[in-house]
Amino acid sequence: MCYSAQIWAHYRDFIRQFGAILDLPQFVDVFWHRRSNPKIKIPRAVEASFETPESEPAQQVKTWIDEFRAAQATGWEQELFKQKKRLADAERRLQTKTTKAALEAQRIATAKIEWLRGKLADLGRRDVQDQDARIFPGHYAPVMVAEGGRRVVKLMRYQCRPAGKLAAYDTKFPGTYNARRDNLEGYWKPLFGYSHGLMVVNAFYENVSGVRADGTTENVVLEFRPQPPQDMLVACLWSRWEDRATGEVLYSFAAITDEPPPEVAAAGHDRCIVPIQPQHIDAWLNPDPTDMAAQYAILDDRPRPYYEHRLAA
């Protein structure tokens, strides 16, 4: 399963290259809800799209981003103060008597202080790095869909909650960030042939089992990048979910996966995302539910780069 990916995060890239339009009110809605729900994870590279706002709604998003980061900084600074006190107390106890509890408190506090200092320092940087465009299940990413005869970019959560399902569906089925090709007319039947989208990525990441020198196994994360380097139009399914009681709306998506090419299989993983050819964009985004063969043909006529891998940083 594709558990993480390096995405196109700047909506202007979609506008410039694909002639898409931005669903700005929908972006605004997501950022507004994050003010009271820190579980909404938006990559920093997506936030960077609003660094130089060009409209009043975009300026409002920028204000909310600044407020969110200020709240993060305050919380981390308060926690840093607590851990410094914890470390000082532990070291004071160790001066008189070495105990297991004091040593453990010293170890934990030291590690947390280092982590918090790193987070605070990172929060203050202005440049956008590759890591800022990486998403994981539950994170939000720009996804291109068709709406009203136009290509439209929406901000969607990478874990699909189909319309009509309870919110608890996310916990019960945590793997719904990927949609297996061999199950598109089974589990994913309500969406396949109806709600298709595209996410643009230039790398993806997988958990695989590695072998240590002593012969035991360990979990490692591999980064796969297409060679030659290229941006891939990853086929997705998406859904618009609404809570009828509160009016809350959630847009979410899943990336379609299929059997892996030989080099991905040899690296230890049994699935791979499915990129489509640029000439199929509109046919994919505007599917005919009476012609499933055409949809499968698009998935089969995929680019087939060589996926070079390395240990993820």
Rank of each mutant, 00 (worst) to 15 (best):
H33M: 13
V30S: 13
Q59L: 05
V30A: 12
E51Y: 08
K62W: 12
N37P: 03
I40K: 11
P57T: 02
V28K: 11
P43K: 09
Q26P: 05
F27P: 01
I21S: 05
I40L: 07
E47H: 08
F27R: 00
I42G: 09
P57D: 07
S36G: 08
V30R: 14
I40N: 07
A20P: 11
K62G: 01
V61G: 07
A20D: 11
H33K: 14
S49W: 07
R34L: 09
A45Q: 09
S55C: 06
R44A: 09
I42V: 08
Q59K: 11
A45D: 14
S36C: 05
W32M: 08
H33A: 15
I42P: 08
R34Y: 03
E51I: 08
A58W: 12
G19N: 10
F27I: 00
P53I: 00
A58E: 15
Q17H: 14
F50D: 04
V28Y: 12
S36E: 06
T52N: 15
A48I: 05
F31L: 11
P38E: 10
I42Q: 01
P38A: 09
K39S: 15
N37S: 07
P25K: 01
F18H: 13
D29Y: 15
A48V: 04
E47A: 04
R34F: 03
